[in-house]
Every structure is written in C-alpha cells, then in structure tokens.
Design a protein around this nucleic acid. Structure first.
Lengths: 149, 149
DNA sequence: TCTTATAGTTAGGTCGTCTAACTATCTTTA
DNA sequence: TAAAGATAGTTAGACGACCTAACTATAAGA
C-alpha cells in the first residue's frame, strides 16, 4: 500500500498507514523532549491549567483521558516543583482549585524555548507543500480526539 | 492561534499546534491497543522483520531509533512468544539473523484484526475531507521521520 | 440520618525506555 | 600474528508514564 494510493473513501488502509507513523513520530517527540530535559506532559498540563484556572484534578484527568491517580501524581509533581498551586474551594471541600504560579508561567515559557526542537527543525526542512499538508491535517486530528467517547 | 491560521510559511506555530495533537493521538492509540490486548510495538517490529528477513537486533534498533538494549529485550520477548526465530549468521558469529515464524505471521494478522479499532472507527466517523487531509499528511510525516539524523 | 455519589490519594504493578558495563566475535594494524 | 579496536548483542538496574484496586473525605439526596 503506497502512501500515494491512500484515498478518503476507505478508512482501513488509512488507519494502517497512519498508525505506525503517528507512533514513531510521537516516540521521537518524547525522546527529544526528554533529551532537552522537558516533559512534554508538563507543558500539556500546565497549558490546560493556565487555560482554565481553578480546574480540578479530575477535570484534567477527564480532559486528557488519563486516570485520576495518574493525573493526581502529575499535578503533585508540578506542585512540588512550585509551578502549580492549589486552593481549597470555598463551597466544596473536596475540590482543589488549581492555578499556574508565576514560576509555572516562567517554566512554560522556558519549555517553549528549550524545545526549539526536533519537530520545528524538521518541519523547517520540509517543503512548503509538506508543511501545508501537515497544517491541513491539524483540524481532522483534533476532531479525531474530540470524537472520543 | 486558531488552527485555521496555520500557514506553511512559519514552522514554529505549526510545531506548537501539532505537538500536543500528536502526543494525545498516539497516547489514545496506545491506550486502546493495550485495552485490546495488543502491543502496537509488536506489530511494528514484526512488520520490520517480515520486510527484511535476516535482519539483526542492532539494525532494528537503529531503524526504529531505539537503544540496542531496548530492541534486544523486545526481540527476546517476541522470540519467547514463538513469533520470531533467530539463526546464527554463517560468516559472522556475532549477528543474529531474525525472521518471523508462521506463528508470528498469524499473530500479525490477528493483531490487524483485533485492533479494528479506535483509529479506524474514528477515521470512519470523520468527514471524507478530513480523511483526505489526513491521507495527504502521511507523506510529510514519513519525511519527517526519514529526515532524522 | 443513612446512603450514595464525587474529588482526590495511596499502594503496587506493567510497559517502554534509557545508560553503563559486560561478553563474544570480527577486523585492522604494528 | 598478536594486540588493539570496532561491532553485535546481552545483563543489570533505573526511570517515567501509565494502570487498577482500595482507600479517605466531603457533599448531596432519600
């Protein structure tokens, strides 16, 4: 199945072709992020909290489709690093209202700079057409995720 | 930065937009594969060996950009499961020539069926345009990977 | 008030990855 | 041709990101 033969009509071969590509690309992404000393996940979670201050651990877990304990431990780590703070809810003693601290904002910026990275560099080496095709793919990728149960 | 504003001219915002999408999609991919009882990696490695019979552990590691010990342990697992066999090279006692056993072929088929999965189902729910845009993105994704040092 | 639901944590396990250090074999070169 | 270096692969031990099961604490409803 050459890539050029992929058509919009048949999802199966498209899935077979995309699966390994997506897995490999994201593996490289993680590897390079780790090499640069940044956790891709930290940026993701900090970004989420920044976008929705006061959000709770379970909200985040649901949004990212991660288990509650998993998210709990990530938040705990971010909190320990001083990048996230939690305030008890006024009217609900169970909830933690999360927000990004100034240090967290700084870290977010730092991450964005540090990972001036594998992906950007390789995107830059791509043809304009290639970049354009990837840009076009962003929306359907997002839809794929929001189509989630 | 709305997705619609992405242009081919500037790699940076494109990288910022694609990074979280790629990470999230591949996480879901792994999660669902695991739920279905298949390792996405097994399929990847079995496929590589099938495509290049006689290949060695280090070749595979280099091809997938994984460390040698990592690949070594995966191959050992596949061998233990009876899906891969190794023959000593005639002229080089260090190398293992790997090949996929009939059981391995069967497993590969089984994996393809078992994971009639998250990705296919969601691709099917996408608009034809969306699928087409993803199909268009396959080639640049591949180029991204081969652009690797 | 008793029960049930929700927010979050603790404990413990799995998987995929890494580096450091090793063995065994092959190749080169003094 | 013996010593030195390169290459194929493994072992040992660690880490990060994920999971489920079981728990605590608070809230809401019968």
């Amino acid at each position: 199945m050459p890539l050029s033969a992929l058509t919009s009509s048949d999802p199966e071969p498209l899935a077979e072709a995309l699966r390994p590509l997506l897995l490999r690309v994201s593996r490289r992404l993680r590897q390079e992020a780790q090499k640069a000393g940044v956790s891709a996940l930290d940026a993701l979670i900090l970004g989420q909290i920044k976008r929705a201050p006061g959000v709770g651990v379970c909200d985040l877990a649901d949004a990212e489709k991660l288990s509650r304990p998993t998210m709990s431990s990530h938040v705990k780590r971010l909190e320990a690093a001083g990048w996230v703070a939690r305030a008890d809810h006024v009217d609900d003693g169970r909830r933690s209202g999360l927000r990004v601290t100034p240090a967290g904002e700084a870290r977010l910026e730092e991450i964005r700079k540090l990972r001036n990275d594998w992906l950007s560099v390789r995107l830059a080496r791509l043809s304009p057409d290639g970049r354009d095709q990837l840009a076009q793919a962003a929306l359907p990728l997002l839809q794929l995720l929001s189509l989630d149960a």
